[in-house]
């Protein structure tokens, strides 16, 4: 597969390692009342769509950026790839 790195252009997916669902960015608040339940869901519950899937790839053999890639799990078409840092900040993640 070719992943369109937002800074470096098209790169072979062999340069990357895959982590999983991009929902991993949304780490729960440890001080929430039901923190254990929230962390449980965060870690173990996943949707499994046949279609567009947002997922995390690490450019291990490249620039070490984490990317959020939107990929169609049926056709393998890659719809978009963004710097995960930008996605995280847009979601309000900070320190």
């Amino acid at each position: 597969m070719i992943i369109p790195h937002p800074l470096l252009g098209p790169r072979d997916s062999q340069e990357f390692t895959y982590l999983g669902d991009a929902s991993l960015i949304e780490r729960p608040d440890w001080q929430a009342d039901n923190a254990v339940d929230q962390f449980h869901d965060y870690l173990y519950l996943r949707d499994n769509p046949a279609g567009a899937h947002r997922e995390l790839w690490f450019h291990e053999q490249g620039d070490r950026s984490w990317l959020v890639v939107t990929r169609d799990t049926v056709t393998h078409e890659i719809i978009s790839a963004e710097l995960a840092r930008d996605v995280a900040k847009a979601k309000g993640r900070s320190k």
Binding site: L8, Q14, E15, G62, D63
Partner: peptide
């Protein structure tokens, strides 16, 4: 300049 893989070596 770009990083890549050569014979399994980054």
């Amino acid at each position: 300049a770009s990083r890549s893989i050569i014979e399994h070596m980054g």
